[in-house]
Structures are given as structure tokens and as C-alpha cells.
Design a protein around this nucleic acid. Sequence first.
DNA 1: CATCTGATGCGACTGAGTCGCATTAAGTCA
DNA 2: TGACTTAATGCGACTCAGTCGCATCAGATG
Lengths: 160, 160
Amino acid sequence: MTKASALHRPHLVKRLAAEGIRLTAQRKMLVEIIQDSSDHLDAASLLRLAKKRDSHIHRATVYRTLDLLKRLSLIDELDLMHLEGEKHFYEVRTKSEHFHLACFRCGKIVEHKTPTFELLKKEISKQTGFRINVIRLEVGGECRNCGAQSSNLPRKVGVP
Amino acid sequence: MTKASALHRPHLVKRLAAEGIRLTAQRKMLVEIIQDSSDHLDAASLLRLAKKRDSHIHRATVYRTLDLLKRLSLIDELDLMHLEGEKHFYEVRTKSEHFHLACFRCGKIVEHKTPTFELLKKEISKQTGFRINVIRLEVGGECRNCGAQSSNLPRKVGVP
DNA sequence: CATCTGATGCGACTGAGTCGCATTAAGTCA
DNA sequence: TGACTTAATGCGACTCAGTCGCATCAGATG
Ligand SMILES: [Zn+2]
Ligand SMILES: [Zn+2]
Ligand SMILES: [Zn+2]
Ligand SMILES: [Zn+2]
């Protein structure tokens, strides 16, 4: 169990209850798995992990729960630059906006944050009049390690 | 034909030639369609438009060409906040980075740019040591118009 | 023009995600 | 606590975007 789970689970459960959403065993389990995972999970991985705990859980339930959590803005959906196919990944939404950098060589995903991002968000809102609900920044490139080796290793995608 | 096409097509063709890529009739046509379109196209729309010009073009060719252009960084792939399903959309990559705002109520897509975004990009690079190859910022929310009506219109997604 | 080779068309195939419906179980209240 | 109501789950058939291997076609080159 990561630090995140202990902090967020009560909040999530409260949110679900507040919306008049039924707190089923499956939903609790799925939320727990997402929160406790140190990786960013895609639907298939989530289903796989869930089946370890309850082999009868059905993929439809996983998709429906992801949709629900997305609609409630309890999780964010990520592409991670489509590093491994067209999958989408999910993570619990935290108050402080962070974003993701994906290395096209080694596949590493790095989370980062900087005040400039928060500033940019405010600025966009002011300049365009949009009330911002979701904001997603993703970066693809070459991480410090891979760049340092200035190697000729095979590339995966997006490299000009 | 939009302003973009006249400016970029020669460049695109040059780039393709430079890479030792064969300039087939199909590739030329697909590049033209993407450039001339005022909308952001997804694979299916691109195929539909292409078939109007050459009814024999096959969907596999469209997918392969999109992959090629993506790999060469000649086009960027967008999600547009999955406003209409899980489709991906494509646009010619221009030098100046812009990003997209999607309104969850009316579905409008707005393109925007601000120096802070360029600044952020430089900052990320410096702070993380990443050599940035692709950077994608997408915003979902409520546009000025829809917000002004503070209406109870049906919502599409992501609204808490 | 002839040759070489990468690209296209094709159609079968895959597999993620969806849908309608019968069954189950969460929440509620007497 | 034990019905009762109704949302949620499990199920399996289904869809349909995207992939793949292979035969054929057509750029590029000299
Ligand atoms: Zn790396
Ligand atoms: Zn993250
Ligand atoms: Zn996506
Ligand atoms: Zn709008």
C-alpha cells in the first residue's frame, strides 16, 4: 500500500457516497487497486489485478467503473504518449497538478510539477474564458539517462 | 485549400523525399487532405475523404501513412479530450506550439497559444534533463459561451 | 526501359470495448 | 432484522477499429 492510498481512500469513498452512488464491493476493490498501484494502470492491467482478488469480476464492470470515476473526476485518464499501443492509463486525481514525461527509448514514465504549469493554467482560463475542468500535459522525448548515452539504441516512436 | 497547405506542402514533400520515402500518389493525397482540412481529422474521416478522390484506397494504407507521418514528426496526434469516443485526431505539426481546448457542452475545439507554454517547455527540459520531442497540452472544460448561459444543458463528460 | 524494392490492396483475423438482459445485492425503512 | 426497490453486476454475443501476411503494383534510379 502506497502513501497515496491511506490519504485518499476515505475521500474517494465519501465522494462516491455523496453522489448517491452505491458502494459495491467491486467498486471498492477497483478503487483500492488503482490507488495502491505504484504504476499507471490501463483497463486490462486493472482487470488482471482485480481477478486476482475476485476471479469472477467481469471486464464490463471494470470499464463501467472507470467511466464512473472519470465522470466524477476522481481519476484522470492518461495516454503516456501511447508508448505501448493505444492504451489509456488511469491515476487518482490529486489536488496538485502534475504531468508526465515518457522516454521513447527506455519507456520510463516520470512525473513532474512546476509552478509555471499552475500559472499557465490560470493564464489560459483568463485568456480564453474557459472554465477548466481537466488539463492534461504530456511530454515525449529522451530522458537524461538515455540522452547521456547518446546511443544508437532502437527507438520506439516519434523520433524525427 | 487553407493557408496552411500552401505553406507546408512543399516542406512536407521535401521531408519525405529527404528520408528516402517513396512519394506515392496515396501519400500525397493523404497529406493534402490533412493539410487542407479545417477540422482535426480522425482516421475514419481521413479514409472517407480519401475515398471520395480514389475509391480504391484501403484503410490499411491510411493507418500506415498516419504511422509514418507520426514517426517523422510531420503530424501530431491529439485526443481532444475524447470528446467523441476514443478517436485520435491529427494535424500538421507547425513550428509554433499551440494547444487545444475542448468544450464539454458544445463540443467546440479552440486552438490557443501563449508564451508561457513555450517557457514551460524550456523549463521542463532544463529541470528534468529530457530532450523534448513531442509535447501535448489538452484542456477540457466549459467555453465562455456555454459558461455565460450557466445553463443546465446536458453534459458530455468529465464534469464533477 | 528494365530492374529492384518498398508500398498498396486485400481480406481474414484479433481483441478491446459495448450492449441488453437476467440475476444479485446495496441501501432503506418498517 | 427482514422485506422491498432499484441500481449494479455477470454474462456472452456482438461490433468494429486496427493489424497482418502475402500477392501484386508502381516509385526511383541509371
Ligand atoms: Zn530513457
Ligand atoms: Zn501520474
Ligand atoms: Zn488517447
Ligand atoms: Zn461550449
